[in-house]
Amino acid sequence: MEILKKIMTALRGGAREVGEAVVDAQGTRILEQEIRDAKESLDDAKNNLTDVMAKESQAQRKAQLIKSQIKETEGHVNEALDKGEERLALELAEKIAGMESELAEQNEITKSFGDHVDRLKSLMQDAERQIAEYERQLSMVKTTESVHKATEAISDSFATTSSNVRSAKETLERIKAKQEHAEDRLAAAQELEREASGADLDEKMAKAGVGQTGPDANDILERIKAKRK
């Protein structure tokens, strides 16, 4: 999109100017204005919509009323015919003709309100899509700006504290040293655990032949031999 291209151009123009280039971008203000305008027209459309929808149901009610009046009058016509009142029946039929044309008119009005509602709804959808699109573009500008400002804040905080930016090699060496240290500590902990459980001492004693308690065959043989003498 247009905005993304502008950001790319600004970024390629050099990091130092990016902040300003993006902050100053007339585009930001224009976008914000466009979002406001689109939201306003969306509000207008909403107001219009409720208005038109009210008128539509009003027209529908009116048509319904005429329909029921026609039905009622048709009943009267039948009654008049039953009683042989031909003239009255004709008069009533003329009344029905008038009501029918009124109904046709009312239906026309209802339909035109319905069309208007559809138009307004699609207008609102367009406006909502437009707002989402403007907001997406604005967020690109704002994010770029924010990231650069955040980097400045972080750099400032680095400058004031002693933890200066290390080179990649130094960082790697630190990590390696830490990992070795962690391995040494793990080995030491295992050693300590072995010592604490006595396994280590038993092993040493067995090696030195110290503390063996089981009877020794040689000793027994010597003892028996001594008794025989």
Partner: peptide
């Protein structure tokens, strides 16, 4: 870390070589 844009520095476990800098906008 206060600034034009506020930033939260987070060190995870003992990975102090890679502090994570969090910043927020309206949406993300």
């Amino acid at each position: 870390i206060p600034g034009d844009v506020d930033v939260l520095q987070v060190v995870v476990d003992d990975l102090e070589e890679f502090p994570i800098y969090m910043s927020v906008s309206d949406t993300q």
